[in-house]
Design a protein around this nucleic acid. Structure first.
Lengths: 105, 105
DNA sequence: TATATGTGCAACCTTTTGGTTGCGCAAGTT
DNA sequence: AACTTGCGCAACCAAAAGGTTGCACATATA
């Protein structure tokens, strides 16, 4: 199933999962301990995250370690780029204003 | 109503609206022309975007101009910061590998 | 004043979301 | 071989999302 990264990071639990596995790979059971939901619910979140390729699996015996595919997060970063340009423009404009004030002094 | 920025940018239509009004303030009618939905549907999206403070209104006669509050987008940028750190770390590690290869040559 | 225009809101409907429980099954453990 | 553990999947459910249409109500315009 084709999934959207933005839709995947919309849920706060999923964002927390992402933050956790960014540091180190974790199993569904280990993850579930951090939340007030069932293991199956966490498993569903992991499925969604896997489908949009934000997360990858590593099988180890009967355990499955989930880890973050940090590169996929760049899609969000890329979308933000257009707004970053605006911040910078605003910032430079402010800079000019300050420079003008200085000159007038 | 308290709204989440991440939930707000999850919808593709809303992201398109944001991109449009990032360039210049627009009315709901003008926006609706860009999409294959009713004006009321666009209005609903604008309401959600306004509730989470991603968008601001300017009343002008009977028209309402909506514009982006670009600062709010920094919340997303701030969340991405943790992953940017990882990118940079990986990049530096790759850099070290390349440097080592060079030295061995 | 009568009419046209721009807008938000409410009611309604279908699909999606996020959770639950119950199950099956492979992989370890006794 | 029997039991325990880790996991995914399916069925089910309530709530939320995203769309529609109809309406009310200001604000132009004739």
């Amino acid at each position: 199933m084709r999934r959207d990264v933005f839709q995947a990071i919309a849920d706060p639990t999923r964002r927390a999962i992402i933050t956790l596995i960014a540091l180190q790979a974790m199993t569904p059971n280990a993850l579930a301990e951090h939340f007030d939901t069932s293991r199956q619910a966490v498993s569903k979140h992991l499925k969604i995250l896997t489908e949009c390729e934000l997360v990858e699996q590593t099988h180890q015996g009967r355990e499955i370690y989930y880890q973050l595919n940090v590169n996929k997060m760049k899609e969000v970063d890329k979308w933000l780029e257009q707004f970053r340009k605006i911040w910078e423009k605003r910032f430079n404009q402010l800079d000019n204003v300050l420079a003008n004030l200085k000159n007038k002094k």
